[in-house]
Write a protein that binds this DNA or RNA. Structure first.
Length: 168
DNA sequence: CCCTAGCGGTGCT
DNA sequence: AGCACCGCTAGGG
């Protein structure tokens, strides 16, 4: 994996590329264990177009704008089920949300809400695969592996309203 | 608020 | 094969 720093007004994101495409993205605030290591020497050569597309997509997403065309994605770290979940997440536009149950239903697995949550947590490319647009039932915030502060910040910019606590 | 039961997918033994 | 873990949900006290 080759890592590239992406500077943004929100700090430095780190993108990880394989020869297949963009494989990971870490937030500026990511804990050392979750943060990609940009010091490791580059493995493979990465097309400049991929880096440019990623940089633009990240900056757009941070402004609550559609990402436009993404570079090729390497989602080989995911199981079939998880890739199906991630594909659904990519259909959620800025400012819109689904909840875990709704994603499960779309997959034809109405009992799979919990597995959907697990798949969201395993999302290797947060922000661009917008797992922050998945809330819990009743518009409750639910979780976020990148830290709930980031989830709140992104949703707020997109004009989404959520409920901080308590069930209906 | 809490607790419980049930759920599907995943990874580790 | 078994089992513990989960970004969950619905129901009841």
């Amino acid at each position: 994996m080759t890592t590239i720093d992406l500077e943004t007004p929100d700090g430095s994101f780190i993108a990880g590329f394989t020869s297949q495409g963009l494989a990971r993205l870490s937030f500026p605030s990511a804990s050392p264990s979750a943060r990609l290591d940009s010091r490791v020497p580059a493995g493979e050569k990465i097309p400049r177009a991929w880096i440019k597309a990623t940089h633009q997509a990240v900056r757009a997403a941070l402004l609550a704008r559609p990402t436009g065309e993404l570079p090729p994605l390497d989602l080989s770290s995911g199981t079939e089920f998880r890739r199906q979940v991630w594909d659904i997440l990519r259909t959620i536009p800025p400012g819109r949300t689904l909840n875990y149950l709704e994603v499960a239903v779309r997959l034809g697995k109405p009992g799979g809400a919990r597995a959907v949550g697990q798949a969201c947590g395993a999302n290797p490319i947060p922000l661009l695969i917008p797992c922050h647009r998945v809330l819990a039932a009743g518009s409750r915030l639910g979780g976020f592996s990148g830290g709930l502060d980031w989830k709140r910040r992104l949703l707020e910019r997109e004009g989404v309203v959520w409920r901080e606590d308590a069930r209906p």
